[in-house]
């Protein structure tokens, strides 16, 4: 192969080398590439001058603009917070009832609450707050702790059985496991509880009488004489058709035998007062729409 051939097609010369049949042209670097290099490098240098860029041993260049991502986002967060403050401050200050009357504020709630609920609450209470095994429905109007606005807000603030120092505390005792009641008694109570709620337990009158006796000995201190619950203790109403853990024989047996201690997280450190109020408004709104017993 001769040295430095000329490529007939392009008219360029080769470098004169050949590797197993491959040759190379010695074409100049196209102008566009140079232009491209200059543009990108000039841009980079300008950027380095303006922004934090080059390190030394103990420090780095801060850049003429003095920008740092942390300052910037903090400013943005504060500014956004201030912009929202126009209405969030009012929400934080007013009672829920007052807010419900202000359609302007309610418009903000309606826009904000669904996503907030989706990111924080839906995991337990379901996407439409309908609840699920172990997690109460928030739409059925059957409030464990009572449906008053302040009650709901307090639950949101401190949670139930949560690690929050002021948490609400509620415990359904483990009557069977702790040996207070025999298995048989637990089964009788399960039937009795079903009958309280008007469900068909399949138990005869004698068994239900035994259940009533056991119930008044053990359960009324929390769930009340008639089983309608004691909101102050977080002991639910057992006579309605709202169940946290279910009304099947198996679920009731487990509840009474092993006890229950639902853990509702505290939101005080994670959500602002205004956010918690919006959520309370949102769920009470859902409950009203469902038209539950208290819903009105």
């Amino acid at each position: 192969m001769s040295v430095k051939e000329r490529d007939p097609l392009t008219g360029h010369q080769t470098t004169g080398h050949e590797w197993n049949g491959i040759t190379e042209l010695n074409t100049r670097v196209p102008r566009a590439v140079w232009a491209f290099i200059i543009v990108t490098h000039v841009w980079a240098v300008i950027y380095w001058v303006l922004m934090p860029a080059w390190p030394g041993i103990n420090d780095y260049t801060r850049g003429l603009l003095g920008i740092d991502q942390k300052d910037r986002v903090e400013r943005q967060v504060v500014a956004a917070d201030a912009a929202r403050g126009v209405w969030t401050d009012r929400i934080a200050a007013l009672d829920l009832e007052q807010i419900r009357d202000e359609s302007m504020l309610m418009a903000h709630v309606d826009r904000t609450a669904p996503a907030l609920f989706g990111d924080n609450c839906a995991a337990c209470h379901g996407a439409r707050a309908e609840g699920g095994p172990g997690y109460p429905s928030l739409t059925d109007g059957a409030w464990i702790w009572g449906g008053a606005d302040d009650t709901i807000l307090e639950t949101l603030r401190v949670g139930v059985n949560s690690p929050h120092p002021e948490t609400r505390f509620a415990q359904m005792l483990a009557f069977g496991r702790d040996g207070i009641l025999s298995r048989d008694e637990v089964r009788i109570l399960a039937d009795y509880v079903q009958s309280l709620a008007g469900l068909d337990s399949g138990a005869g009158p004698a068994r239900l009488d035994a259940g009533a006796a056991l119930f008044s000995d053990n359960c009324t201190s929390c769930h009340g004489e008639d089983g309608t619950g004691t909101p102050e203790l977080g002991a639910p109403n057992l006579t309605d058709d709202a169940w946290i853990y279910g009304s099947s024989d198996a679920a009731l047996f487990k509840t009474i035998h092993d006890g229950r201690q639902g853990w509702m997280p505290a939101w005080e450190d994670r959500l602002t007062l205004a956010q918690r109020k919006m959520l309370a408004l949102y769920i009470t709104g859902l409950a009203d729409a469902e038209g539950g017993p208290d819903g009105d």
Binding site: R84, W87, H108, R111, A115, F117, G118, A122
Partner: peptide, 9 residues
């Protein structure tokens, strides 16, 4: 309102 529109889900 200046609040997030969508949840992760």
């Amino acid at each position: 309102s200046g609040t997030l529109a969508y949840s992760f889900t």
